[in-house]
Design a protein around this nucleic acid. Structure first.
Lengths: 118, 118
DNA sequence: CAGGATCCAATGCGATACTG
DNA sequence: CAGTATCGCATTGGATCCTG
């Protein structure tokens, strides 16, 4: 880890902005089990609107993290799948997710303790 | 990893919101070398305004990720340091940072390729 | 089914100026 | 030095309705 990430103009920031988007993280998590359709993802990820999900998917497609495949059928079917690049993101993201699940409690109680004496 | 993170009401989302904040990530990175003063951090992290840095630090203190120590001196000195909890975040965060540095190029070129045929 | 379009409310964030 | 206060734009994100 060089100091790169500290430079506002360093492209590394681009990645952080992407990871930083919680929807992106959840999409990666949601696609770990294989390709998913739009509505599947929408249902899987609680609280996301179609608009935002679309934006997220488009941005991730642009960044080469996933593919969007349209099947010429009726009714229309579109599948999203992780690319190898996107799949390689799983490990770090799962590390974060694991940390989150392990430490939520500590964070919440720290928060409560802090708020108690406010 | 259970499906927790997909539930909008699950506290795990709280963590993602925190990690999702790019400033928090950079603060953790900036404090890996030991305690730092406000201005040091400000200088270290390019492009952050005092206001936002303060907000970030306060939120992280609230969550038990770092401590804020005021020294009764003139001129005033305030040091920020990671708590054990905050320090435990380093590993997952560095995993992300490492991924970012390894794959920025791939992402940027994917983006360029995508934009080229737009 | 998979979104695109539109409108709007919230707020994040930067710039600037000021204080203990 | 280490912030706080205020202003204001610009972006984000939700809600809703519509279409290939």
């Amino acid at each position: 880890m060089k100091g790169d990430a500290f430079d506002p103009d360093c492209p590394t920031r681009l990645i952080l902005d992407r990871i930083g988007d919680k929807w992106s993280v959840l999409v990666v998590l949601g696609l770990t089990g294989g390709p998913r359709r739009f509505t599947e993802l929408r249902g899987l990820i609680g609280g996301v609107t179609p608009k935002v999900l679309t934006q997220t998917l488009r941005a991730m497609e642009r960044d080469g993290l996933l593919t969007r495949t349209i099947f010429a059928e009726v009714p229309p079917r579109v599948e999203y799948a992780l690319t190898p690049l996107g799949a390689s993101l799983r490990r770090p993201i799962e590390a974060i997710a694991a940390w989150a699940e392990e430490n939520v409690e500590a964070v919440v109680s720290a928060r409560d303790r802090h708020d108690a004496l406010a």
